[in-house]
Design a protein around this nucleic acid. Structure first.
Length: 432
RNA sequence: UCCCCGGUAGCUCAGCUGGUAGAGCGGGUGGCUGUUAACCACUUAGUCGGCGGUUCGAGUCCGUCCCGGGGAGCCA
């Protein structure tokens, strides 16, 4: 048996014999010469089986190989411009491990519903593969970035006793002894406790929303990255958000160019994602909408349409701050200059991808926070621990949440969040 | 919860004003020594989402339910 390697490494073995273990992606036959496209998770390579050159058993094996059959294949690596990827394998030996039967996903077109029913197999196709590799890389790059800045990974619980924000609908489940538990919609409140302990923390994990959202921008289960910093004001997280988003986009551009190519992503759109991002206030956004002929009442949050029109005006993500306080969550701090505004931020991705970041400076005064809890009809008992953070050494602090799937979908240029997570949880769909 | 669109072969779809279902792909068989979603020939393939109604006759019209997709609201 020759040197076992992976497809992404074959360039180092030109002229040598190697063994690849993988699956049959597609095959073409022209009688006595057969072309097998093999994938192994790291890439795809074309293998050429010529009757006069390969072992007879190897040539015969190509006969029975069906799409997605698993196999082990040995041959000489050759550079050839005719092969997709630039290298091909001149096959001398081939062993089928398992013959796949009636693989449902053909290289032709399929509908969304069918593909989602076969998500466990759909993951193998090259576009999905590229998206999920970029997802993996985005999460890794975000963590590397934050770790380097001195942030501590601080995992928040998923089972929580009550609403974090008191706004959205939560998934409810049974806890012990008749108690109820709710799936977390945000790790933020816990991250605030972490910030008071460690200074700078971030949570990273799944969050859950039980709203019956039925759009391409919503998932019932999605991943969120939530940095939280003590001794930080709104301005500090605006810089952090801008810097983090830039870092993610530029890192993918340099380190995941192959995947972006598979996705046929317009790179110029990503290349322009560099500081400074435009920063406008809610009031300025209203003016901007008015210029476009849209009158939006002061006090109302923007809908999908407004977000799209605002972000269209810029070639990079836009930072919107100072929304009306009354529409926002109870923990947001009001602007001392204009108390009816919140010290908060939304970052809208470019190209109409919508909100990828939402954050704020947090209310750090005990009495004000308590008053706001009451205003929002939230049960004080559930938040005693949270109030403690303002009793014992309260400091100005701020943070935001970055939606992983929205960020990945935007970077990849795909039009639905369901492709940005391995197994999406949607309103009508929890299988597979 | 509301609004719009859809459900016909394993997949993607066509099927006009009602007259007993068709193409491409896939599967199968055969051919081809450089294919690129290969190609060529032959072949296989259906409770037309369910139920009820109108009609001599319903994939087609009506009612109703189920399932899916897109959007609104909510938000990452």
């Amino acid at each position: 048996m020759s040197q076992i390697t992976t497809i992404d490494q074959v360039g180092a073995y030109v002229g040598q014999m190697v063994t690849i273990r993988g699956w049959l992606y597609n095959k073409r036959s022209s009688g006595k010469i057969r072309f097998l496209l093999i994938r192994d998770g790291t890439g795809i390579i074309q293998s050429v089986v010529v009757k006069s050159e390969a072992a007879p058993e190897a040539f015969n094996a190509t006969e029975i190989l069906t799409q997605e059959s698993s196999l082990e294949i040995s041959g000489t690596v050759r550079a050839d411009a005719r092969a997709p990827g630039g290298y091909e394998l001149q096959v001398s030996d081939l062993r089928a491990i398992q013959i796949a039967e009636d693989y449902p996903i053909s290289p032709k077109e399929h509908g969304v519903s069918f593909l989602l029913d076969h998500r466990h197999l759909w993951l193998r196709s090259s576009k999905q593969h590229a998206v999920l590799r970029i997802r993996s890389y985005v999460i890794q790059a975000a963590q590397t970035y934050l770790n380097r800045k001195g942030f501590v990974l601080f995992d928040a619980p998923i089972l929580t006793p009550a609403a974090c924000e008191g706004t959205s609908t939560l998934f409810e489940t049974d806890y012990f002894y008749g108690e109820k538990a709710y799936l977390s919609q945000s790790g933020q409140l816990y991250a605030e406790a972490g910030a008071m302990a460690f200074g700078k923390v971030y949570t990273l994990g799944p969050t859950f929303r039980a709203e019956k959202s039925k759009t391409r921008r919503h998932l019932a289960e999605f991943w969120m990255l939530e940095p939280e910093m003590a001794f930080a004001e709104l301005e500090d997280i605006l810089s952090l958000a801008e810097d983090l988003v830039t870092h993610l986009v530029q890192s993918v551009l340099t380190d995941r160019s192959e995947e972006l190519k598979v996705l046929e992503r317009d790179l110029t759109k990503l290349q322009s994602v560099v500081p400074p991002f435009p920063r406008i206030t809610y009031d300025q956004a209203l003016d901007l909408l008015k210029e476009k002929g849209i009158s939006h009442p002061w006090g109302d949050d923007f809908g999908a349409n407004e977000d799209a029109i605002i972000s269209e005006q810029f070639d990079r993500p836009v930072i919107i701050t100072h929304y009306p306080l009354e529409t926002k969550a109870f923990y947001m701090k009001s602007d001392p200059q204009k108390p009816d505004l919140a010290l908060c931020v939304d970052v809208l991705a470019s190209e109409g991808y919508g909100e990828i970041i939402g954050g704020s400076q947090r209310e750090d005064d005990y009495d004000t926070l308590l008053q706001r809890l009451v205003q929002h009809n939230l049960p004080r008992e559930s938040f005693e621990w949270y109030l403690d953070l303002r009793r014992y050494g309260s400091v100005p602090h701020s943070g935001f949440g970055l939606g992983i799937e929205r960020t990945v979908a935007w970077i990849c240029g795909i039009n639905h969040l369901r492709e940005a997570i391995p197994f999406p949880r949607l309103l009508q769909r929890m299988y597979p």
